[in-house]
Design a binder for these strands. Sequence first.
DNA 1: GCCCTAATGGAACTGGAGGCCCGTTTGAAC
DNA 2: GTTCAAACGGGCCTCCAGTTCCATTAGGGC
Lengths: 207, 207
Amino acid sequence: MELEARLNATQPGSVRPGGRTAKVRAAVLEATRDALADSGFHALNLDRIAAAAGVGKTTVYRRWGSAVGLVTDLLRDMAEQSLPASDTGSLEGDLRANARVVLDTLTDPRMGPVFRAVIAAAACDEECADALHGFYATRLSEWAPVAERGLVRGELPAGTDPLEVVRAVSAPLYYRFAVSREPLTPDTAERAASAALAAAGAGAFVV
Amino acid sequence: MELEARLNATQPGSVRPGGRTAKVRAAVLEATRDALADSGFHALNLDRIAAAAGVGKTTVYRRWGSAVGLVTDLLRDMAEQSLPASDTGSLEGDLRANARVVLDTLTDPRMGPVFRAVIAAAACDEECADALHGFYATRLSEWAPVAERGLVRGELPAGTDPLEVVRAVSAPLYYRFAVSREPLTPDTAERAASAALAAAGAGAFVV
DNA sequence: GCCCTAATGGAACTGGAGGCCCGTTTGAAC
DNA sequence: GTTCAAACGGGCCTCCAGTTCCATTAGGGC
């Protein structure tokens, strides 16, 4: 599709998002999740997705255009589902809980491949990269209150950047997951949480 | 190519790796680097690579098979070039130097896209994932002496895992680079180094 | 309930990625 | 320098991802 046409025309599915259109999107994204879980991003085939979703392949090509477009929309769908942060009463407890949530997500046989695909797609496409950035901006801000409460309770030095504390918990897990490809164990999550806590406590994230 | 054939037959280029074969590989990998730098992984086209390298497209398909195969070999090529660790005399200095090296690599207009491609390809293919794992296993072990010297100097608690210290420096940078897609600045590198130092100093990486 | 058009879906088409054949070139062993 | 097979490369072909066309279905405003 021409760039100009995309910008001027309304996106398919945006003008009349009721009944059928919404069902088509749900079925297609569901089929995409299934396909990613059992064959991964490289094997994503829009014809098969259409067949699995019980939808015309023309529709899939028209609305999503490519595997990257499909994964980008899947990411937007994920971004809509908020993941509430925990509140255990201590910074340490909350950071451990966060590390555990990230670990469980990345090692989940269904969600793990989705996250791999999303990271790969973002490496291939700027629009997807923006969506991924937005997704994590939301997730990080949802967990930032954990650090803010820690600040109020005096568990962190004044001036500590709450977002940076939350990032520090996720980073080692994602590094193993997507970069060094090392196994993710509960132990890894524990260490990520305690390292973040120690670094933050020492003032490493004071701006 | 059939799986069985790949396993039994010798890989093209492995029996007679002299003159022409080596030149072909160098030219193709060079063309791949160029293509990644200006159009990214998704635009990688084996026909164009062959043309740019001045090589028959049959050769490229036969030896590398696909874009992922090409990137996997590029990764193996990168793994052969060792990157010596610094030795500034202090753990802090060495960790800062390491953070700086990683930052410079990821923000380099030529190397950045290559690393993105490698991460994306590894998310699509197990063989590439293994190669990526091997690459970072090597890199991490090259920098581990930095932490080992710190241990000897008493800058780290006894029992600290040297690899874990080095991982802690890279993780926040790669997290921003590939996952949350946030900008990488010199400041980010500084903070990664000092956070790793603080966490390690507090005994967060004692096994 | 009626109309209008957004959205879907079937079917046929097409371009190019990727594979195959086979003659040519060139390392490497002697 | 001769030999032999590994590796290369040009040309041809196949197949399917992605597109186009148009008829059909079904939201949503009235």
